[in-house]
Simulated assay, not measured.
Amino acid sequence: MSGLRCLLFWLLLLMPGALLAVPTFQPAMMPLGKGPDAVAASTARMVGAMLEYSRWPSARPAVRLCIAGAARHADRLADIRLSSGAGVELVAIGAPGEPAPDRCDALYIGRLDSPTLGRLIAGARGEAVVTIAEDDPACRSGAMFCLLYTPQSLSFQLSIDAVSRSAVRIDPRVLRLSKGGY
């Protein structure tokens, strides 16, 4: 019995150290540039990269990027250029609660109240629409991508559940980036 107690003592003593040795994952971060619209420019680069790694069921000559809600960092989204040659068309959604899948290939969501946000995400679920939330750091809205802002950088979280419910396929390398792999 004494040997078992000794073993248990050492296991309990060493366990916190073993738990601390497990690497924590940090998402890939994009440093913010300088200037008055550095956050908006970085947001446009990040959203452009997300769209680059998205595959819709059929080719899009232009990706219709709809903006819903009060978006703080969407000023430079019109600057997005995709390497595939597809353009990006910005579409403002008049009433944020209305379903957007028939008019949008991607949905950039700014600040919205919870019921409106829920209706918007539910309307895009199962459709060929990439959803990107600007103001959801906990990533609980059901959007596929959630932007994470810090004073010096921008990163994102990816919701595997939301991606699996979408008709849009996201390149698996994006998951590695969201978890900190390169």
Rank of each mutant, 00 (worst) to 15 (best):
G3P: 05
L8N: 09
F9P: 09
F9W: 12
W10G: 00
L12K: 11
L13G: 11
P16C: 01
P16L: 01
G17N: 01
A18S: 09
V22H: 06
V22A: 13
F25L: 15
F25W: 15
Q26D: 14
P31F: 04
L32E: 04
K34S: 12
G35M: 03
P36G: 06
V39R: 09
V39L: 07
A41Y: 04
A41M: 05
S42F: 01
S42Y: 03
A44T: 00
A44D: 00
G48F: 05
A49K: 13
Y53I: 08
R55Q: 14
P57N: 09
S58H: 13
A59P: 08
A59Q: 10
R60C: 00
R60D: 00
R60N: 01
R60I: 00
L65P: 11
I67Y: 02
I67F: 01
A68S: 12
A70C: 03
A70H: 13
A71G: 09
R72G: 05
A74W: 10
D75C: 07
R76Y: 02
R76G: 01
A78T: 12
I80T: 01
I80F: 06
I80N: 02
R81G: 03
L82A: 06
S83T: 13
G87E: 07
V88A: 06
E89C: 08
L90W: 06
V91W: 03
I93S: 02
G94R: 03
A95V: 08
P96I: 07
G97A: 11
E98Q: 15
E98P: 08
A100I: 12
D102L: 09
R103W: 02
R103T: 04
R103G: 06
D105V: 12
A106N: 14
I109C: 01
L112N: 14
D113K: 13
D113N: 13
S114Y: 11
P115L: 04
T116Q: 15
L117Q: 13
G118R: 10
R119C: 15
A124F: 02
A124W: 00
R125N: 15
R125S: 10
A128G: 05
V129A: 03
V130T: 04
T131A: 13
A133V: 02
A133W: 07
D135M: 09
D135V: 08
P137K: 09
A138V: 10
C139E: 06
S141E: 01
G142C: 07
A143D: 08
A143F: 12
M144A: 10
F145I: 15
F145D: 03
C146K: 01
T150V: 14
L154G: 14
S155A: 15
Q157W: 02
L158K: 04
V163E: 00
S164D: 14
S164H: 15
S166V: 08
A167W: 14
R169A: 12
R169K: 10
R169M: 14
P172V: 08
R173I: 11
V174N: 04
L177P: 08
S178C: 01
K179D: 13
G181T: 14
Y182F: 11
